[in-house]
Design a protein around this nucleic acid. Structure first.
Lengths: 220, 220
DNA sequence: ACTAAATTCGAACGAACGTTCGACTTATAG
DNA sequence: CTATAAGTCGAACGTTCGTTCGAATTTAGT
C-alpha cells in the first residue's frame, strides 16, 4: 500500500509547496489505508464502522476525516490502488513475451502472486466489488474492464495460433473464478505458495482449454 | 423457497395442534424468506436493514419478528434451506450413476442449474458465507463440508480409476471457484443456459484434470 | 523564539439501526 | 355468537452509525 499522491485526493486544501512526493500526508494516508484494508477484510465494508477504522489505525474518529472525506472514498482508494498496481505489474511482466501460452501462465502467476502477497487488499477488491456507487464504482469498473480485456486478448491469441474452439468469455470468467475464489479457502499454513498453485491452476485451465478442442464441431 | 417446518424455528410458542405441514405460518415465513433473499442479494446482509425487508415483504417491521427472532436467524434460514436443497438434489441425481467422470459432470450440472434457477439464494449463500456467527455459522459450515467432501470423493474416485495425478484439494476448490464466481457475471440475456455452461465448464475442468496427468512425475 | 500552516481530537449532530412492547385486528373452533 | 389463539402493527426503546465543528496541539519555515 503506497503513495496515493497528488491527483488522487481532494479533501482539504492541498499543501501549496510543489514537488512533495512521499510527504507526511501521503505516508500517513497510506498507513491508514493499510489498516482500513485489514478491517474491511475482516468485517466487510458495510460491517466495518468508522470507529473500527479509528481504533485499528490508532487515530481519532475525527482525525481520519482530515485524510479522506468519506468511508466510501476510502474503499475507493483501496480498490483503485490495488487494481492499478496489479494491472501495471502484469503489463510489465508481459513485455517481451510473445508465446500466448506463456503469456497466460504469466497472467495467472501474476494474479495469484499478488493475491497471496496482499490477501486483505485482494479480498476487499474481490468481495466488495458492489459496495461502491456511481462515480466511484465506474472508475474501478473501468480498470476491471481493462484487466478483463487483456485476458480476453491473450486467450483469443491462443485460440487463433492453435486453431482452438471454445467460448472466450466462459473461459476467461472461469479462470477469474478459479483464481479469485482463493480468498475463501487459502490457508498459508496448509496450502502451497503462489508459484505452485499458479502452476496447478495453469495446468488445469490450459489443458482444459487446449486439448482436443480443435476437433469439436459446434453445438455439442 | 419452501417449508422450513417444525423443528426449524423457535420464536413464539408453537401451535399445539400436531400434524400441521404447510400451515399458514410456514407459508408466510417462506414468502418472507423469498423477499428477504432478494434484498440480501441486492444490498448485502449488513447493508440490508430490517426496514428494507419490511418494505419488500409488505409487512410491518414489528410483524416480521413474529416469524423469526433476529435478522441473523433469517439469514441462517435462507442459507440452510438453500444449501440443504442443493445437497439433497445432488444426492438423488447421483444415485445409480457409477462412472466417476459422469458423476463429476452431474455435480457440475446440478450446481449450475440450481445456481441459475435460484440466483438470489445462491448469491446470498456464496457471498454472505462469513456473515453468520457461532452456532449459526457452524451449522451451515457443516453442510458446506459435507458438500465439499462429496466432491472430493468423486474426484478421488476419478483419480483412482484412471491413475491420474493432481491435488484433489486444489482441483475441487478451483472447480468451486469457477462455478460460484458465476454470480458476479452471469447475465441471462447474454449468457447461455445452465446446461451449456455446465458442459463448457465441465469440458475445461475435466480435460484439465485428466489429460496427460498420468505421465507427470511428482514435484514438477 | 515566533508564527502560520498542518495535523489531531473531544464532543456533539441527526439519522438510521435492530429489537421490543402492548394494543389492535383477523381467523378459528365450539 | 363467543371466546381464545394467531397474526399484525404503530410507536418507541437504547445504541450505533457516518460525519462535522471548533478548539487544541504539533510541525516547519524564518
Amino acid at each position: 500500500m503506497a503513495s496515493p499522491s497528488i491527483e488522487t485526493r481532494t479533501s482539504p486544501r492541498r499543501p501549496r509547496s510543489i514537488l512533495n512526493k512521499g510527504t507526511r500526508f501521503d505516508q500517513r494516508l497510506a498507513e491508514i489505508l493499510t489498516h482500513a484494508t485489514d478491517v474491511f477484510c475482516d468485517k466487510g465494508y458495510e460491517g466495518a464502522s468508522m470507529r473500527d477504522l479509528s481504533r485499528a489505525s490508532g487515530m481519532s474518529l475525527a482525525g481520519l476525516y482530515y485524510y479522506f472525506e468519506s468511508k466510501e472514498r476510502l474503499l475507493f482508494l483501496i480498490q483503485k490502488h490495488t487494481f492499478t498496481t496489479i494491472v501495471q505489474r502484469l503489463k510489465s511482466r508481459l513485455e517481451g513475451v510473445s508465446d500466448p501460452e506463456q503469456q497466460v501462465r504469466i497472467f495467472i502467476l501474476n494474479h495469484l502472486e499478488y493475491f497471496l502477497a496482499n490477501p486483505a487488499s485482494m479480498k476487499v477488491l474481490s468481495h466488495e466489488a458492489e459496495a461502491l456507487k456511481n462515480g466511484f464504482a465506474s472508475e474501478v469498473a473501468a480498470i476491471k474492464r481493462e484487466y478483463y480485456r487483456i485476458c480476453v486478448g491473450l486467450l483469443d491469441e491462443l485460440k487463433r495460433e492453435r486453431g482452438l474452439q471454445f467460448s472466450t468469455r466462459i473461459a476467461v470468467l472461469s479462470l477469474f473464478g478459479m483464481m479469485n475464489w482463493i480468498y475463501t479457502w487459502h490457508n498459508p499454513k496448509v496450502d502451497a505458495d503462489a508459484e505452485q498453485i499458479a502452476r496447478e491452476m495453469g495446468e488445469i485451465f490450459l489443458r482444459g482449454v487446449m486439448n482436443g478442442s480443435r476437433a469439436r464441431k459446434d453445438g455439442r
